[in-house]
């Protein structure tokens, strides 16, 4: 299944840093996020888009992860040549990440 089946996401911008939240629809699925949506996978997914580091913060209270991606906005929102200078569309790429449910089937996913 895809990450989009079990989580939702929002991108924010500050200067040349993009942050992407990944929030489990169901608290029971949060451990799956923690084990599979690692900063290494996120860094690999975005490839050349993210020149700097990807740091992950865990928020178990709200079943969420927050990825902070340095040097990810083409030099910064106010000067980038990109069509989407804010990187607002980046969360949509992350939600396409493949997740190994380990359930046998995905009936438990919302």
């Amino acid at each position: 299944m895809k990450l989009r089946d079990i989580a939702h996401s929002r991108t924010g911008d500050k200067g040349n840093i993009s942050n992407i939240s990944v929030i489990a629809f169901d608290a029971k699925l949060y451990p799956l996020l923690v084990s599979q949506v690692t900063s290494a996978r996120v860094k690999a997914l975005f490839g050349p888009i993210v020149a700097g580091t990807v740091v992950r913060y865990e928020l178990p209270n709200i079943s969420a992860l927050n990825f902070v991606m340095d040097q990810a906005l083409g030099g910064g929102v106010t000067r980038s040549l990109a069509l989407d200078a804010h990187g607002k569309s980046l969360s949509s790429a992350l939600l396409d990440l493949e997740i190994d449910g380990g359930f046998g089937d995905t009936d438990t996913a919302p």
């Binding site: 939702h8 709200i62 079943s63 969420a64």
Partner: peptide, 13 residues
């Protein structure tokens, strides 16, 4: 869900 997304919007640590 809308509140969780906004809580982390433009937040780093």
């Amino acid at each position: 869900a809308t509140c969780k997304e906004q809580l982390l919007y433009e937040v780093h640590d």
